[in-house]
Simulated assay, not measured.
Amino acid sequence: MMRRMRRLRKPGIRRIVAETRVSTDDLIMPLFVDERLESPAKIGSMPGQLRHSLESLAKEAEELEELGVPAVILFGIQEEKDEVGSGAYDPRGIVQRAAERIKETTSDIVVIADLCLCEYTSHGHCGVIKNQEVANDETLPLLGKAAVSQARAGADVVAPSGMMDHMVGAIREALDDEGFGDTPILSYAAKYASSFYGPFREAAESGYAFGDRSGYQMDPANALEALWEVRLDIEEGADMIMVKPAMPYLDVIRMVKDEFGMPTAAYQVSGEYSMIMGAAERGWLDGERAMGEALTSIKRAGADMILTYYAKEFAKKTQE
C-alpha cells in the first residue's frame, strides 16, 4: 500500500485533522494605562497599539469582554517616579486604580496585574539600587507590598516579572498574611534578557538609566537554566508560570511544559508583534496569516495561555 499524506491536505479534511488550534480563550491582552492621559495615544513602535487613559482603558476592557477575550494584563505609566518605585505599591497607583475601574465596568474579564518596579523607578531597573546593582533581598518586601495593594484593588492575578530570586516566595507570604491566600501568582519564571523588548520600552517608558538587565534576566544561550528557574518558582508557590519571549524560545516552552505540566503561559512580546505588523504594513507579509502561524507555533510548543497584543484583532476576526 502506498501512503499518500496529501489525501489529508484537502480543504475541509485539512481542517478536521488539524492537531493544534488557537482560540480566543487562549489569549491574554496586554494593556498600557498612563495616568497623565485624558485620551488614548498611539504607540509609534507598536502598530495598532495604544496607551490608555483610565476611561479609555475601561472602555477597551468592556470591548474585549464582549469579544470573548478572557483576560487582560495591566502595565502602568506613572507621572512621578522615584528611586524605590513607590508607585508600584501605592494604594492609589495607576495599576491599582485601573484594576478598580475595570472591575466597575466588566463582569467576567480576568484582571492580571504585572508586578515589577521598573515602570515606577527613576533609574528604570526592577529593584532597589545599591552600588549600581539591583539589591535582590531589599527589593523583595516591596514586591510583597505591591502584590497586596494590587490584590486589594481587585486584581484577580498578580504576575511578578522582575526575575528577583525568591520573589514568588516573598509575594506568596505577603498575600497570605494579608488575607489574599486565594489570589494566584502567574510568575514570569523564565524571562530572558532579550532584544525583542525594544518597543515595550517606549510603550511603558521603562528604559534603564545605566547598564542593562542581564544581571537578573536569563541568558538567551541557556535552556536548562529555565527548568531550574521554573522549579524554584513552583516550589515557592507559583500557580502558573511563563516563558518570555515566546517565538525565539519555543524549545523552552516545550521543555517547561513537558517537565512540569503546569499551566504555562508564553508572552509574544512587543518586538515579536511589531516585526510581523511592521512587515505587514509594508506588504512584505500577509499579516493575518503570519500572526496566525506565529500564535499556532506558540500553542503547539505547549503554551496554555498566550499574552499577545494581537488578542483583540484575533477575537474580531474569529467573530467575523
Rank of each mutant, 00 (worst) to 15 (best):
G144Y: 02
P141M: 07
D239H: 08
I253Q: 03
R289W: 13
D114H: 00
I112N: 04
Y188N: 05
L74N: 03
V256W: 06
A88H: 04
V252L: 12
T121Q: 02
I241A: 01
D304K: 04
G278P: 06
H123Q: 07
A221R: 10
V110R: 05
R231G: 15
G144V: 06
R201A: 05
E62H: 05
A266I: 00
A246C: 05
R15L: 15
A303D: 03
L31G: 01
E205A: 15
V110W: 09
A155T: 07
A265V: 01
D251A: 14
Q150L: 11
Q96T: 02
G292I: 14
A246R: 00
S187W: 03
E225C: 08
R101H: 14
F314H: 01
M46C: 09
W228Y: 14
W228R: 11
R97S: 06
L175F: 03
G287F: 02
G85W: 02
A153L: 08
P184I: 12
E235D: 15
V269P: 00
R9N: 09
E281P: 13
M277H: 13
G237W: 03
Y188P: 06
D90G: 06
I234M: 15
I171N: 03
A153V: 05
L37C: 14
Q78I: 06
L31T: 00
K257T: 07
A71P: 06
R172S: 02
S39H: 15
A279G: 05
S274H: 11
E313G: 06
